[in-house]
Design a protein around this nucleic acid. Structure first.
Length: 727
DNA sequence: GCCTCTGGATTTTTT
DNA sequence: ATCCAGAGGC
C-alpha cells in the first residue's frame, strides 16, 4: 500500500483536510472523541514521510507526559523510524531542556533544580518569616497563586505591583520579589519559571531565539484551550519564523482557568494569524448517541461559547442513569454493586470502568468500599508518590548533591534523620547565613573548613560540620558513581533505613524508598552527572496521570480534571450535587460556573457506552452531615435520555423512593415509621421535645425533620435517632 | 531538643 | 474526619 494511503486510511474528510493542510497556521477545533490526537500524529507522519520534513525540525507539545508517550507510540507504528528525533513533550519538559542548554544566557546555571509545589510552599513560608508577615493573614497558598499568576502573565515583581489593586497585591509583590531572589540564590526554578524564563531567554537573546525558530519548521500544540499567556507567547516565539503552527483544542473542554489558562488564546490565534486555516472536527467516534446528546445539552447552557454541531454515527445505546443514593457510603456501594453486576453479566470487565469525582477527598469512600467488595482499582493520585515524605527526603539529598545551593532541600534534610539541629538552631543557622550574605551551603562548607567560628554551641557546630563533611563526601563521589550506587550510598551514609524503621509505618515507607530506587535504575546507564539530572527532572515533572497504564484489570478512580483526554466504556460521575459539581467556590462567579459546566461536560464525554450520574442525598462535609441538592447540570438532561422518566426539573430536592432511575440500592436497617407524621409531637434524648415538620422516605431509611423547642430544626434518621411520640 | 497533646482550621482542580 | 501548628512536659 502506498504510504499516503496508509497515513490517510480511515480518516474522515475533515481529518484528512487537517492532516494534509498546506504550510501556514492551522487551528483545529475538535470535539470530544473526534480524533484530535489521531490528527496530530497522522499530520506529523504526513509531514515527515510525504513532505519530507526532517523529524528534527518538528516539535509537538502536549499537556501531560502520558499524552506525549502515547503520541510517540502511535508515531512509532505509523513511521517506525526517526521518531526519536522528533521533539515531543510537555511545555515544562521542553522548556527545561531549552534552559539546561541555553539558560546560561540569562544567568541560569544548567544544574538548576526544579521546585515543585511543596518546595515552593516551604520557600514561601521562609520568605514570609523573613518579611515578618503572618502566614495566617497571608496564606502561602494565596501568595503562591498570586505569584503563579504574575509569572503566567510574564510580570516581574515591579510590573505586578504596578498592576496591583489591593493591599494584598502589594504584599504579594514584596513576597514575590524576595521569593524570586531566593530561588535564584538556590539555583532553582519553579514550574512557572520554566516557562517564563524560556520566554525571557528568547526575548533577551534574539540570537538564541533565532536558532530555535530556524530549527523548528513545524510546531504542533495539543489541548490548546488550556494554554496560558506564557505558553501562548512561547508558541509565538518558537513558531514565529516559519509560522507553521498547528494548534488543536476544544474550547468546551477548557478547565484550567485556575492555572491561568486563557480561552482568549483561541481568539488571539485567529487575530494574530489572520491567514490561519480553521478546521472543525465535529464527528465523534467515542460515545453513544445518547451520551453525546446528553453532553451537548449540558454544554449548550453555557452563554460564553461558540455553538458547534457534534454528531455521531454510533448507536443510540443505553440511556443515561441518574441515581440518587442516601449518602456517600451508599453511593459508593451502588457503584461497587453496579460494577459487580456488569462484570458478572459479562457486559464489561474491570478495566472498562472509571469513577470520576470533583474533589480528591471523594475518592476515599469509594476506595474503602471497593476494598471491602474486593474490587481491584487504581487510584490516580491518592497521596502522590513523589510527594511522600520519605521520597522527597531522598530526592532532597540527591538534589543537594547536584546543586549545593538548593536551600529548600538543605533545610529539609538538615535534621533528617535527627541530628539534634532543632528549630532554634535552624533559625539561628539561616539568620547567620543571611547576615553573612552567604548561601546556606557556603556557610556549612566554611564551617567545616574551620574558616569561621560559629555562634552555636560546640555540639551543634560539630554536628553541622559532620553534616557538611558528609554532603561534601557524597558530592565528591557523585561524578564517579552511577545513579543507583549514589542512591544507595546516600541511604547508607544517612542511615535512612534505620531512621524509617523507627516509625510506626516504617516498612511501608521503606518500600517507597525502594520504589524510588527502581525509578533511579532506569537512568543507570547514563553518565553519572547526566543520570542524576535526568532522574531529578523526571521525578519533578511527572504528573499522576502519567503513570496510568492501559489494560490493567482494575477500576480507575480519577478526578474530572485528570480524566481529560481519557476514555472508558463505563463511567460513573459521583457527587452530582450543588456544592460539589458545581463546586461552591464557583457559585458567585458566572465565568467559574461555566467552567464547572465544562468540567461536567468533560466527564460525561469520557464515557463510550454507559454513563451513570450519581448523587448522594446526604453527604459528610468537614465532619458534619449535610443534605444536598441535585446538581443543576442534571436539570439540563432531556428526559428521554434518562433511564427512567424521572425528571429532575419537577422533583428537585425530592427524595421519593419511586424516583430512582436505577434499581434501588437496598441496604439493611430499613426502619420505616409510618406511624409518625408531620405535626406529631416527639421527644428526643438530647434535643428534648419538638414538632415533626416533615417526613421523607429515603432508599433505606426514613428521615424526620423536627423543629425542637429551643434547639432549632434538625433532620434526624429514624433508624438512629430514638424519637418518642409524645401523646 | 524532641515528643506528645490539644485546639483550630480546613478541602478544588495540577504541570 | 484529618492534618497542622503551637504549647507544654520530658
Amino acid at each position: 500500500m502506498d504510504i499516503l494511503d496508509k497515513i490517510l486510511a480511515g480518516l474522515n474528510p475533515a481529518q484528512k483536510e487537517a492532516v494534509e493542510a498546506p504550510d501556514g497556521p492551522l487551528l483545529i477545533l475538535a470535539g470530544p472523541g473526534s480524533g484530535k490526537t489521531r490528527v496530530i500524529t497522522h499530520r506529523i507522519a504526513y509531514l515527515v514521510r510525504i513532505r519530507g520534513v526532517n523529524p528534527q525540525r518538528i516539535m509537538a507539545v502536549t499537556f501531560t507526559n502520558k499524552a506525549a508517550r502515547e503520541m510517540t507510540e502511535r508515531l512509532e507504528r505509523l513511521m517506525s523510524y526517526a521518531v526519536k528525533e522528533l521533539t515531543i513533550g510537555t511545555f515544562h519538559a521542553i522548556c527545561s531542556r531549552i534552559l539546561r542548554r541555553d539558560g546560561s544566557a540569562i544567568g541560569i546555571d544548567n544544574r538548576f533544580v526544579i521546585y515543585d509545589g511543596d518546595d515552593q510552599t516551604r520557600l514561601l513560608k521562609r520568605c514570609l518569616q523573613e518579611l515578618n508577615l503572618d502566614p495566617k493573614q497571608y496564606a502561602p497558598a494565596a501568595l503562591a497563586s498570586a505569584i503563579s499568576s504574575a509569572k503566567a502573565h510574564l510580570l516581574d515583581p515591579r510590573q505586578y505591583l504596578e498592576r496591583g489593586r489591593s493591599y494584598f497585591d502589594e504584599i504579594a509583590a514584596r513576597v514575590y520579589e524576595l521569593y524570586q531572589q531566593r530561588l535564584r540564590e538556590s539555583n532553582a526554578l519553579d514550574f512557572d519559571d520554566l516557562l517564563m524564563m524560556a520566554v525571557l531567554l528568547f526575548r533577551r537573546n534574539p540570537d538564541v531565539l533565532e536558532r530555535y525558530q530556524s530549527r523548528y519548521l513545524h510546531l504542533l500544540v495539543d489541548e490548546f484551550q488550556d494554554t496560558n499567556l506564557v505558553q501562548y507567547e512561547l508558541i509565538r516565539q518558537i513558531g514565529g519564523k516559519h509560522r507553521n503552527i498547528c494548534v488543536v483544542g476544544d474550547p468546551d473542554q477548557s478547565i484550567y482557568s485556575w492555572r491561568f489558562a486563557d480561552l482568549r488564546n483561541i481568539l488571539s490565534f485567529e487575530k494574530d494569524y489572520p491567514d490561519a486555516r480553521v478546521i472543525l472536527l465535529e464527528q465523534s467516534y467515542r460515545s453513544t448517541r445518547t451520551i453525546l446528546e446528553t453532553a451537548s445539552r449540558i454544554i449548550m447552557a453555557n452563554q460564553q461559547r461558540k455553538p458547534k454541531n457534534l454528531w455521531t454515527e454510533n448507536e443510540v445505546g443505553e440511556p443515561v442513569s441518574t441515581v440518587e443514593t442516601y449518602n456517600e457510603q451508599e453511593e459508593a456501594q451502588f457503584v461497587a454493586r453496579e460494577v459487580e453486576r456488569l462484570v458478572s453479566r459479562g457486559e464489561a470487565s474491570l478495566g472498562d470502568f472509571a469513577v470520576m469525582y470533583r474533589t480528591n477527598a471523594q475518592s476515599r469512600v469509594i476506595e474503602e468500599t471497593f476494598l471491602r467488595h474486593g474490587i481491584s482499582h487504581r487510584l490516580v493520585a491518592g497521596t502522590r508518590f513523589y510527594e511522600r515524605r520519605e521520597v522527597k527526603d531522598i530526592i532532597a539529598y540527591l538534589r543537594l548533591i547536584q546543586n549545593p545551593n538548593d536551600g529548600v532541600s538543605l533545610m529539609r534534610i538538615i535534621n533528617i534523620p535527627q541530628r539534634g539541629i532543632g528549630d532554634q538552631s535552624q533559625a539561628r543557622f539561616s539568620a547567620w547565613a543571611k547576615s553573612l550574605d552567604l548561601s546556606l551551603y557556603e556557610v556549612l562548607k566554611q564551617l567545616a573548613g574551620k574558616e569561621m567560628k560559629a555562634p552555636f554551641t560546640p555540639h551543634v557546630a560539630g554536628v553541622l560540620c559532620a553534616f557538611a563533611g558528609m554532603m561534601e563526601g557524597l558530592a565528591a563521589r557523585s561524578n564517579e558513581l552511577n545513579l543507583v550506587d549514589l542512591f544507595d550510598l546516600v541511604v547508607e551514609r544517612t542511615n535512612y533505613r534505620a531512621y524509617l524503621m523507627n516509625m510506626p509505618d516504617g516498612e511501608e515507607r521503606w518500600d517507597n524508598v525502594m520504589e524510588l530506587r527502581k525509578v533511579a535504575e532506569q537512568h543507570r546507564d547514563l553518565y553519572p552527572p547526566d543520570g542524576l539530572t535526568a532522574f531529578l527532572e523526571g521525578v519533578t515533572l511527572v504528573s499522576d496521570v502519567d503513570s496510568l497504564e492501559e489494560g490493567v484489570p482494575a477500576v480507575t478512580l480519577i478526578t474530572l480534571h485528570q480524566a481529560k483526554g481519557l476514555e472508558f466504556p463505563v463511567v460513573f460521575i459521583v457527587g452530582m450535587e450543588e456544592g460539589l459539581l458545581p463546586h461552591f467556590r464557583s457559585f458567585d462567579d458566572p465565568a467559574q460556573m461555566e467552567e464547572e459546566r465544562r468540567l461536567c461536560y468533560v466527564g460525561v464525554t469520557r464515557a463510550k457506552k454507559r454513563l451513570y450520574l450519581v448523587r448522594a442525598f446526604r453527604r459528610n462535609l468537614m465532619g458534619r452531615s449535610i443534605v444536598t441538592e441535585p446538581s443543576r447540570f442534571l436539570a439540563d438532561i432531556p428526559r428521554d435520555k434518562l433511564a427512567t422518566g424521572s425528571s429532575w426539573q419537577e422533583e428537585r430536592g425530592g427524595v421519593d423512593a419511586s424516583q430512582y432511575a436505577w434499581e434501588k440500592p437496598s441496604l439493611s436497617a430499613a426502619v420505616a415509621r409510618p406511624d409518625l407524621k408531620a405535626g406529631d409531637r416527639v421527644r428526643h434524648a438530647q434535643f428534648g421535645e419538638g414538632v415533626v415538620v416533615g417526613i421523607k422516605a429515603t432508599s433505606n431509611d426514613t428521615e424526620a425533620t423536627v423543629a425542637f423547642d429551643g434547639h432549632g430544626v434538625k433532620k434526624l434518621l429514624m433508624s438512629f435517632a430514638r424519637l418518642e411520640k409524645v401523646v
